Amino acid sequence: MTRRGFLAAALLAAASPRWAGAADAYPSRPLKFVVNFPPGGAADTMARIFGQKLGETFGQAIIVENHAGAGGAIGMVYAARQPPDGYTFTMGTLGSAITQPLISQMAYDMNKDFMPVSLIATGPAVVVVGAASPYKTLQELVAAARAYPGKLNYGSGGIGTFAHLWGAMLNDAAHVKITHVPYKGGAQALNDVLANRLDLIAVDPPAALPHIRSGNLRALAYTGAQRNAHLANVPTVVEAGYKELVGANCWSIWLPAGVPAPVAARFRQALVTAMDDPVLKQKFSDLGADAMHTTPDGLRQYVAAETAKYGRIIKEQGIKA
């Protein structure tokens, strides 16, 4: 063996046990889970359910930190700047992981700043209006929007979120002009629908269900292709005549770029174990979301497909932050 070959082999032998040992010992302390939306919303609720189960799997505490604002972008920037040691991870949504980079020049790059781990859930939304609203169906609301262009408004948790882009797709499909009003989080927007200060919002079912059941909100449509078991009397957008409006939010897990491969593999192994838990699956189902896990490549492929779908509407309507 040449001297150069001997040195290379020695370096590899020295490095491999170190990384293997790091993965074996990982995690040796609590992990930080960066959530890009305020407490109380669907993303936060889902994150805490997942975080608790992941912590049980790891045998370590998972500390949730909420960094809200700009449709999830503020939290993503914060997460991207954390040390790539496997002790910080974040949840991406449709807005923060897919559409925000299409809308404006972001201070983070999903391809360069993050390591994909897995998609953990997808879930359609329910379109709701306040109890005092005169609209009983999506068709009635569309008719009013056509009669009074720009008078009606809809809310969202920020520019580029699913609620925002679903409203943009409604404007496109129905040839109407309903004004978008962005908020810091979906919970704040929903509160204004409840107070009849906003006309409508497309919101994750768990946030709306208690208010629908109490009679404080009226559900007009569900954005899935099939009806939701928890909203059995609510027609889908397909039934309302708008198959173009089928869509769902998504929730995915990402690590900062540069996490050592053995540590990332250990993290994903724990994620798979957590996501296969029957209790977690039921809790996600109760939230109106389908629990799942994918490979990192599977997550990348999903992001690419959704980017193509929403990129068209963003470009055509000139949506910018």
Rank of each mutant, 00 (worst) to 15 (best):
A229T: 13
H230I: 15
L231P: 08
L231K: 04
L231Q: 08
A232C: 07
N233F: 14
N233Y: 09
N233D: 10
V234K: 03
V234N: 05
P235L: 08
T236E: 01
T236M: 02
V238N: 01
E239I: 01
E239H: 05
A240S: 10
A240C: 12
A240H: 05
G241T: 00
K243C: 02
E244N: 03
G247I: 00
G247L: 00
A248E: 09
A248H: 09
N249M: 03
N249L: 03
N249I: 03
C250S: 13
S252E: 12
I253D: 05
I253A: 03
W254V: 02
A257M: 13
G258A: 00
V259G: 04
P260D: 01
V263A: 01
R266Y: 08
R266G: 06
R266C: 03
F267S: 08
Q269T: 11
A270N: 14
A270W: 12
L271H: 07
L271N: 13
L271Y: 15
V272G: 10
V272F: 07
V272D: 12
T273K: 15
M275F: 15
M275A: 12
M275H: 15
M275C: 13
D277Q: 14
D277P: 11
D277N: 15
V279W: 08
K281C: 13
K281R: 15
K281P: 06
K281S: 08
K281D: 01
K283E: 14
F284P: 12
F284K: 08
S285T: 15
